[in-house]
């Protein structure tokens, strides 16, 4: 019986690779169909606008008189080097990034480390409370902070008996950035909680202290999450939307460069110059991204992926 059934097998072997190929083709087609929404979105909302911005940046495109648009070469880029307020905005964006991101990372990392301790009580509610300010829109934060440091009735001015509130106003963006630690904190906490307990036990047997254990086990084991938090903090520092948006309109973005771009766009309807500035910003963010990803090779320990890696 078995022989009879097996007998036709060799004969059907010849069309089998063909069938396998069509299966692969089918899989690729279906997979591609699933990717289609994002591919179309990428095309129409990312790639085309980015290239169009590049095109605009070589013209004197004005919204109100599109027919007068002419190719002006690199003039917009040369204007940038002469425009001192554009330079100041770019400097402001870079310094905001350099000041806020390390601060956010250190505080979030510290909190996540403390939250892995078994001794801490009331973790769930505290997690939510630490995350809470991250979903408060920037306009509400602005109202709250300006009330808090109000010269006459603010708590801070009353507490410290301050007559001038100017230095506090410059601290305002930093306060705002500290209130965005939520996503990074939760991502790092998730990773730290997933570190196998046996590793700590082994290190304890070897006589490693808590700080030693944190540096040589917790940080390397959760480095992909730390890296991911770093990337999303970088994006939001430069005014983009990563996991959570502060709900700032462009004109009051925390990134001065972004505010300046919209200022050029709406106050002067100078779309050509705005596009050139946006491209400069784009190149800056890409350079920072590449530096971050390059550095990741040295300190981020990506786990070995399983055998289905070829996807």
């Amino acid at each position: 019986m078995f022989n009879v059934k097996r007998a036709p097998a060799p004969r059907s072997r010849s069309p089998k690779p063909d069938k396998h190929l069509s299966l692969r083709k089918y899989e690729a087609t279906v997979g591609f169909l699933f990717l289609l929404p994002w591919l179309l979105g990428f095309l129409f909302f990312k790639l085309v606008p980015i290239l169009a911005a590049l095109g605009f940046s070589f013209t004197n495109f004005k919204m109100l008189e599109p027919e007068a648009t002419r190719f002006i070469g690199l003039t917009n880029y040369l204007t940038f080097f002469k425009d001192s307020s554009a330079g100041a905005s770019l400097f402001g964006s870079i310094s905001y990034f350099l000041l806020s991101v390390p601060l956010e990372m250190v505080i979030a990392l510290f909190l996540a480390a403390v939250f892995t301790s078994e001794r801490l009580r009331g973790k769930r509610i505290m997690r939510t409370l630490f995350f809470m300010p991250s979903i408060i829109p920037a306009i509400a934060i602005f109202i709250i902070i300006s009330g808090l440091i109000d010269v006459n009735n603010g708590w801070i001015t009353r507490l410290f008996h301050l007559s001038q509130s100017t230095p506090l106003y410059s601290l305002f963006p930093i306060i705002l950035s500290l209130w965005t630690i939520g996503p990074g904190f939760l991502i790092m906490l998730g990773a730290m909680q997933a570190v196998p307990k046996e590793l700590y036990e082994a290190a304890r047997v070897d006589g490693a202290g808590p700080i030693n254990r944190f540096v040589s086990i917790t940080v390397p084991m959760s480095s992909p999450a730390i890296f991911f938090s770093l990337v999303i903090n970088m994006i939001s520092a430069f005014g983009g939307v990563a996991l959570l948006d502060r709900g700032l309109s462009y004109s009051q973005s925390l990134s001065p460069m972004e505010s300046y771009i919209t200022y050029q766009m709406f106050s002067f309807s100078n779309l050509g110059y705005a596009s050139a500035l946006a491209w400069i910003m784009f190149i800056l963010v890409m350079v920072v991204t590449i530096i971050l990803f390059r550095s990741a090779r040295y300190w981020v320990h990506f786990p070995e992926e399983s055998s289905d890696d070829e996807i």
């Binding site: 990428f42 129409f44 909302f45 990312k46 085309v48 606008p49 980015i50 169009a52 911005a53 605009f56 919204m63 990337v231 970088m234 994006i235 430069f238 005014g239 983009g240 939307v241 990563a242 462009y250 460069m257 972004e258 771009i261 919209t262 766009m265 779309l271 705005a274 596009s275 500035l277 946006a278 491209w279 910003m281 784009f282 963010v285 890409m286 991204t289």
Partner: peptide, 17 residues
């Protein structure tokens, strides 16, 4: 890569679109 693209770059052309 699209995660890190700043919003400002797509702002002007999207507005035109």
């Amino acid at each position: 890569a699209t995660i890190v693209i700043p919003d400002s770059i797509t702002l002007v052309p999207s507005y035109v679109i």
